[in-house]
Structure formats: C-alpha cells, structure tokens
Design a protein around this nucleic acid. Structure first.
Lengths: 138, 138
DNA sequence: ACAATCCCGACTAAATTGATAGACATACTG
DNA sequence: CAGTATGTCTATCAATTTAGTCGGGATTGT
C-alpha cells in the first residue's frame, strides 16, 4: 500500500523539480497547487530536508528548493526519505525459508523505484500535456 | 511492510503443505507448531478457506487440509487471500504521471510472489534441514 | 449424550496514519 | 526597530488499520 504521505511527497518533489532554478516555492504554494494539507506538507518537507534532498530558506522570499538536479534524483530516494526502510519484514517473521524471498522482493522493488528519475517524470508529464492539448485542438 | 497476518498465513500453509496426504491438521496443532495465536489463526484459516485454498472438516478428527498440490500453490495466492489486493494505490493518488510506475511495481511484485510455489519452499526447507544436520555432525 | 472440532460475529487494545495547533526562530522590508 | 512572511519544532488528536480475544453456535465421530 502506498501511503498518502508518500504520494504527497512525490508530488511535492515533482513540483520542486518543475521549479528548478526558479525562486524557492513556499509550503503554501506547493500545498495549494498540489492539493496537499499545508501543515501535513510541512512535516513531509522537513523529512525531505533532513534526508538532504531539499534545502530551505527562511523569512520573506523563503521557501524550498531541490538540492541537486532532477536528473539525479530518483523516486526511490524520495520514498525512502518519507517512509523509512520500505517493505521490511518484522524480524520475528524473518524465517530462514521465507527471508530469501522477502530480500529478493525488496531488491526488485528498490531497483525499479531507483531507476525512475524526476527528470523522466517531467518529460512524461510534458508528453501527457502535449497530447491533451492536441486532443483538445482536434 | 509484511503484516504478521501474512507471515502467519504463509507459515500455516507451509505446515499444511508438509502434511499433504495426511490426516487433517487442527487449528491448535498448527498454532502450536508454528507459534501462532490460535484464535487469530482461526480467522486466517477462514480467509484461506474462503479463497478456496484449503478445505476443512468439522467434528472429531477434523481440521484443515490443503486443496490441491503444493506444486500448484504459490506464495502470491496466499498473500492475496489474506491481504486482499496488495500494494494498491489510493485512487486519489492515481496521478497520470505516477500510475504507470505503480502498475509496473505491482506487476513485478506479483510476478515474483506468483513464481514461488510451496513445493519449492518445501525443498528449500529440506535443504536447510540437511545442511543443519551435517553442520552438527561434523 | 458427549467431546472435539470448525464457524461466525462482535468486540477490544495497540499501533500507525493523517492531520492540526501553538509557540518559536529567522530573515527581509520599510 | 517594528512588522510580516516565512520555515521549525513539539505536542496533540482523530481516524484507520492491525493484532488479537471472546462467547457462543453448528457439525461430526464415538
């Protein structure tokens, strides 16, 4: 199950990715544009900052910016920043017979989410936008 | 995260797999041998029965048996029986940009858990048992 | 009849998730 | 400096999910 916190985080980071190079985005701007409860987003952005994915500026003209390029930022990094270790098996259940399966599962999942970057999401978004426009104009 | 319910279910089905062809196992036998709270196991076995993976016999000499062979029963079938649809994304979060990723993730995960049968787990268990014995006898 | 078993629905407690609140720190502006 | 717009922190709360329990009922073999 994907938690709301996780999808909020991904959308927030996507918003920050769109904004690369621009003025920092405030919590409220992101909250409004992405439809995320502002006080909740605040905690999420703090997690992202503590994991070193974003930087923040206080005071007037403050807000959040991505640290580094969307090209080098993967979905997996964001997920792990807000969810902690994912898909973990409780130690008591780490039965010898089943644990190789859980490990393999975790590896597969991490490989997948680590191979998708925000740069790729941005171009996917762009493709979707273009096709929506052409659908409308036809 | 793998729930306790899920790992209990897997261990219970593994116990039933070991017992293929034998007299039915009672809830209490499985609960004791696998260290699962009996009343909780009862609910789990009910789920498994309702999904058609096991059959039950009531009264004295009653208990549970696997329906079908461990060779044709996958870990994925058991997981889905007790967890319902797994790794689902809340519909509100089913954003056009992210949903292909969630779908691919779900497909990968299902492929993996559907490719591992209880027959395979039984032989893995056997291998482990043999190597433990030889470790001891050296 | 009796005992052993599964069957069912309701219930509870603990943990997690989703969200909110208030006080505080920082930084820019005039 | 005063004022305002920001982020920071800790605590709290409500809703949901997970884990587990309970009491009684139904079924079957002896």
């Amino acid at each position: 199950m994907i938690s709301k916190k996780c999808s909020y985080a991904l959308r927030a980071v996507l918003a920050l990715s769109r904004n690369t190079g621009g003025k920092p985005l405030t919590i409220h701007q992101i909250a409004e544009s992405e439809g995320i409860p502002a006080r909740f987003l605040e905690a999420i952005l703090r997690d992202l900052k503590q994991s070193g994915l974003t930087e923040s500026l206080r005071g007037k003209e403050g807000g959040y910016r991505l640290l580094g390029s969307p090209r080098e930022l993967s979905v997996g990094q964001v997920i792990r920043a807000v969810e902690g270790p994912w898909l973990d098996v409780p130690t008591e259940a780490a039965d010898e017979v089943f644990s190789p399966m859980w490990e393999e599962l975790q590896n597969n999942v991490n490989e997948l989410v680590d191979s998708l970057t925000f740069q790729q999401l941005l171009s996917r978004e762009d493709t979707l936008r273009r096709s929506a426009v052409s659908d409308y104009s036809i």
